[in-house]
Amino acid sequence: MTAIRYLRLALLVLAALMQPALLRAHEASMGVLEFHEVRHGVYIGRWTMEPSIGAARVDLRVPSHCLLRLPEVNCGERGLVGPITIANLGANMAVVLIKLVPLAGEPRSYTISTANPVASILGTGAPTLQTWIELAKTYVNYGIDHILLGADHLLFVLGLIWIVGGGWRLVKTITAFTIGHSASLAAAAFGLIGVPERPLNACIALSIAFVGVEIVKQQRGEIGLTARHPWAVAFTFGLVHGIGFASALAGLGLERRLLPAALLFFNIGVEIGQLAFVLLVLALIWAHRRLDAVLPRWGEALPAYAIGSVSMFWFFGRLVRVLAPI
């Protein structure tokens, strides 16, 4: 039970650090900027998903041979090739996806983030070593940003840690979750399965509520499904969360030939972010043990009900979107 007390403290600290962003889940701090080539070397830019900072305040920098007069970018004969950056990345705008739609050929996508503030726009020829390096930088960073900005996924993982505890049982449970979301992410990205995004997001919220109920059962001395079969539960809900990860890649105009590599790098980024979060929670547990801190008895049930309340808040908000006319 000592480990459970450690996790209670970890949840309270993390909840304090994640507010108010926790209630927004994947919303805000991201943007998608498309550049459509209207004639050779001339592009028109438009926001298909505007960042929370506001499009008018985005400090966009284009290659030196390009002339920027928004919404037009004129790059002449060389085309839009070279470094693009956004100078004022920060808490209100952490990630911007740059989508380039040429007159001929497939669209290409690049990520600008606080971790990777410069995107090198590549040519349309055959992939080179630089192409693969840029692809790896782009999608590993995008995967890290996506999981660390995805409070719902992190809250689910935290619930699993709470129920399972530490040791090899936790390693196996997190591994099962990874296998589940990796499999469904690949299947969804290649078009083998498809689930409407709004109902899917509601189901993700319900998966967190399920874990919250399982924690309450454990506090009452009952053995819930997750406590009995943590790997099966983690794998099953991992399938649901993986399709949610795939929705992050939808509509980015990825080249079919580069999709397997982009998918691999994105998944690596997700796993790096997830591992960093797990290590953070374990570090808080270690710190709690060293301090020998004990929560008051009245606060023991608060974290479990916090998980349930936040997840149901998300669920009803997402359910309204499902039922609302498009």
Rank of each mutant, 00 (worst) to 15 (best):
V13T: 10
A16E: 00
M18H: 05
P20G: 05
L23T: 10
H26C: 04
H36E: 14
R39Q: 13
G41H: 05
M49N: 11
R61G: 01
L67M: 11
L68G: 08
E72Y: 10
N74T: 15
G79N: 06
V81I: 15
T85M: 11
A87W: 00
A87Q: 13
V101R: 11
L103I: 12
A104G: 05
I112T: 06
I112V: 15
A115R: 15
A119H: 01
A119L: 08
I121P: 07
G123L: 08
T124P: 10
L129K: 07
L129F: 13
Q130V: 10
I133L: 12
L135T: 13
K137P: 00
T138R: 02
I147A: 06
L154M: 11
A176V: 06
A186I: 15
F210Q: 09
V211G: 01
E214D: 11
R220Q: 14
W231L: 12
A232R: 11
A234E: 10
L239T: 06
I243S: 04
A246G: 11
L249A: 02
G251W: 09
G251A: 08
A262W: 03
L264E: 01
F265E: 00
N267H: 03
I268T: 10
V270L: 10
L275R: 07
A276R: 07
L279A: 14
V281D: 04
L284E: 02
D292E: 15
P296S: 03
R297C: 06
M312D: 05
V320L: 07
L323F: 07
P325F: 10
I326D: 00
